[in-house]
Design a protein around this nucleic acid. Structure first.
Lengths: 138, 138
DNA sequence: TTATAAATGCAAGTGAGTTGCATAAACTAT
DNA sequence: ATAGTTTATGCAACTCACTTGCATTTATAA
């Protein structure tokens, strides 16, 4: 994606334009899959780890990224749909985790299956984590 | 649940019978909802935190408990279905997280909705995290 | 009852993420 | 373009969840 497009994405989320943010943004767009703090640290040794943490958090707050629930204790992040805003996230995500390569992807399926919950419960959002083997590893 | 029943659960999972394991087991059965290490520490000040960690891990390994994916960096655990074993977990869980009280429950729904994944992908298991407001908080 | 294997407690260590503060860079209004 | 204001960065040090090593105690099996 062009530098100008990246800048306009940041601007539209009311974020100042910095090298670190542009680089991290580009990285997420290229990689497609989910990324962790560690991935960023490996990729961008020129930035301090704290700066990368803060970049992730500013992207989270502004609705550019979302956290993907997992059971490992290490946060992974994925790009939000265009419809996400700081106040209202598009909550219905489907994530696929490959048990072979460990890669996590956000699937583009627009349709999250219906769930039924006990009477009296109100559903805000649904997050699916599907695990298995991805096409590359199969 | 009776002390004898608790003991037979531990035995059937090839775990030695200790006070800590009996107490933690009973606690999970009473609480029904998901619990964290912190919950156990608050409840059982007589046991060292490391012992509680190790108790949780032995229950995980033997298929008594499963970890519930979340985005907080703090592990929460729930009782497995009877059909779980160390080697083969019943992977299709539905968890409900109340955004008001924070309580996490494992719903008993046997039917996890069908998901479609891209061609070439193989599904091992599906984990759903539904968030919203529980009946008590509504 | 004794031998053996595993569980416990304590101390210390790791790894992910956060906070405080000084400096540097990005935006705003002249 | 410039000066002033606001925000981002880097560094050091911190917190919190969780783990490991090792000596001691306890559970089980012979």
């Amino acid at each position: 994606m062009s530098q100008e497009n990246l800048k306009s994405i940041l601007k539209s989320h009311e974020l100042r334009i910095t090298d670190c943010r542009l680089d991290v943004m580009q990285f997420f767009l290229n990689e497609k899959g989910a990324l962790s703090q560690g991935d960023l640290e490996n990729q961008f040794t020129q930035y301090d780890r704290v700066t990368l943490y803060r970049t992730l958090n500013s992207f989270l707050d502004s609705g550019i990224l979302h956290k993907i629930p997992n059971e490992t204790g290490t946060a992974t992040y994925g790009l939000c749909h265009d419809t996400c805003s700081p106040d209202h996230h598009e909550h219905n995500h489907i994530h696929f985790k490959c048990n072979s390569c460990g890669q996590i992807e956000c699937l583009d399926e627009k349709v999250v299956p219906k769930v039924t919950v006990p009477t009296g419960y109100k559903i805000d959002g649904v997050n699916m984590i599907v695990d298995g083997i991805c096409a590359t590893c199969a």
